[in-house]
Design a protein around this nucleic acid. Structure first.
Lengths: 108, 108
DNA sequence: ATATTTGGCAACCATTTGGTTGTATTATGA
DNA sequence: TCATAATACAACCAAATGGTTGCCAAATAT
């Protein structure tokens, strides 16, 4: 099994995606993230740990509070993968077009 | 727990991402996907099932073979989410700029 | 000074995940 | 026709995942 725990895996969980969305408006402490969120503090703490580990958020201690901030630059990896896949995909059709064109020429 | 088994979860697994990359060059049957891939046929079949279930690939029966083809349109959901997140993120800075500007005005 | 808020730690749990092996079925090629 | 290639089906397994509860420690507010 290949190493997991990367950005792809981080955003795979819908709860974590919601947490990220919440953080987009500004930094929040764990309690703030937990508001209107039928989920225990500990569960949130675990998600925060995952997000932090793969660089999707940064965590800053401030007294007894822990402020989390989104780190969207890590999403580049995802965006790049999607873009690269699409590019390869479209190239596949170009190759097919070229092939059809060649075939056409030969039939004339 | 919220419903999973969506595109995000589909591309979360590195093995599945490799399978998708393989399929970008053209359709393959299960055996073809399994080539140079230290993994059992059954494991691949399971990944194929997941990818099919969330529309990342289409599967066509052809005699005894099962040809898989990539379906990249589903990646829109991922790309859109990333784009929307980035937009919100940048808006956050705009708001901060505006705030600072207002503050500056009042100080004059 | 004391109650409350914020969060850490640890144990526990059910389910899912990613994988395996073994056996059966069916289409195809020699 | 018959061996083989391509896949299905099922049972099983270890580890990871996403969650819980209970208790503890330390800042902070009253």
């Amino acid at each position: 099994m290949i190493e997991r725990r990367d950005v792809f895996q981080a955003i795979a969980d819908p709860t974590r995606r919601i947490i990220i969305q919440k953080l987009l408006r500004g930094p929040l402490n764990l309690a703030g993230i937990g508001e209107d969120f039928g989920i225990s503090r500990q569960a949130i703490a675990k998600h925060i740990k995952v997000l932090n580990e793969c660089g999707m958020i940064s965590v800053t201690q401030k007294g007894r509070e822990q402020f989390c901030e989104a780190r969207l630059s890590q999403l580049d990896e995802v965006a790049d993968w999607v873009a690269a896949s699409r590019k390869l995909w479209s190239q596949r059709f170009e190759k097919l077009d070229k092939f059809l064109e060649e075939t056409k020429k030969q039939n004339i």
